[in-house]
């Protein structure tokens, strides 16, 4: 689980090009959107593709993403439960 969380943090940084942030800067419960990491709706779409590509989870409604991407912890829990690869 903690491995998955570290993996997710690294992927978020790389995929979203968060130049000035390192893995250690993101706590498991930090909010990814809004006041937390400051991600926006375009980032959510990027993360939806990541879920599909890397974990075989397909979301059809971008609104679902908002809940799943609340924090790295929530994301990891969701992936653990739904992953197909």
């Amino acid at each position: 689980m903690s491995e998955l969380k570290e993996e997710l943090k690294a992927k978020i940084i790389e995929q979203l090009n968060l130049e000035d942030i390192v893995v250690a800067d993101i706590a498991d419960d930090d909010a990814l959107f809004g006041d937390g990491l400051g991600l926006d709706s375009i980032d959510a779409l990027e993360l939806i593709v990541m879920l599909d590509k890397d974990y075989g989870i397909r979301l059809s409604d971008p609104k679902e993403g908002r809940k799943i991407f609340e924090s790295v912890q929530v994301m990891a829990d969701y992936i653990q439960e739904h992953r197909t690869k």
């Binding site: 995929q15 375009i42 779409l45 990027e46 593709v49 599909d52 590509k53």
Partner: peptide
């Protein structure tokens, strides 16, 4: 497949 929106935007 697996296309992301940023470069399109």
């Amino acid at each position: 497949q697996y296309l992301t929106p940023t470069s399109f935007i």
